[in-house]
Design a protein around this nucleic acid. Sequence first.
DNA 1: AAACAGGCCTAAA
DNA 2: TTTAGGCCTGTT
Length: 277
Amino acid sequence: MITEERGGEIFLLPEDDFSAKKIFDCGQCFRWNAESENSYVGVAMGKAARVREADGGVYITGTKGDFESVWRDYFDLNRSYEKMREAVCTDDYMRLCSSFGAGIRILRQDRWEALCSFIISQCNNIPRIKGIVERLCEAYGDEIDFEGKRYYSFPSPERIAVLSAEDLAFLRSGYRAPYIVGAAREIAEGRLDLEKVALLPYAESKKRLMELNGVGEKVANCVILFGLRTPSAFPIDTWIKKALRAHYPEGLDTSIFGENAGLAQQYMFYYERENEA
DNA sequence: AAACAGGCCTAAA
DNA sequence: TTTAGGCCTGTT
């Protein structure tokens, strides 16, 4: 992605896929909120930023230096999503999903935040997930001042590990609370190192994640895709399950997408969810 | 009002 | 190995 500095902001030229709305709305993250038609504010990796579509491109505004140290990697700007999008057009249905989802990018998120967020996501809807995550951050995250407003980072596992499930009752996260505390303790007390898990082969990292209480196949795959930044993971949830039944009754071998399977999944998920009957 | 939300766990065959 | 039922909470 070609970038230039414009008056202290970073401007992304319209050279590769980038739709803020689709990126933040396709269900991969929970901490970006629209402030107007084409401007979003969010927090990730302990930093706040504004992403604004204007002048035919995208402005990314954060604290000085954050673009190179955080946002370039977070938005995966060094890979061509246009090329990957073309690569997953393996049939008519995938062509439909890809063209509808053009602009989606897979965010390279914080490992622990992804684990915790997708534990919360189980059997839950997006507005409620966002509410729970926001309350968690306000209560235990660090304050971040940005554009004259106060935001909060995602709290570290160490911060959560000293709490009990009852302490988290105010989150209204229900039966997921002990899962959150349990996962935080595994990390904070040194039994689980997500950096190391990220280096394992896919099957082993999935197995390791699924040893956590409250982490099954689907959550593990989301963590691997979004948090461990393994682009070949293909999480199967109820939406994807329905789409697979409808369009691939004989089954779909997701390895045909190779490293782009995760992106193919996001296109499929976004298409199905946005075009709900 | 009953069913359902981007599941997971446990028990039981 | 697969299946049923229960689970917190909020919304439709």
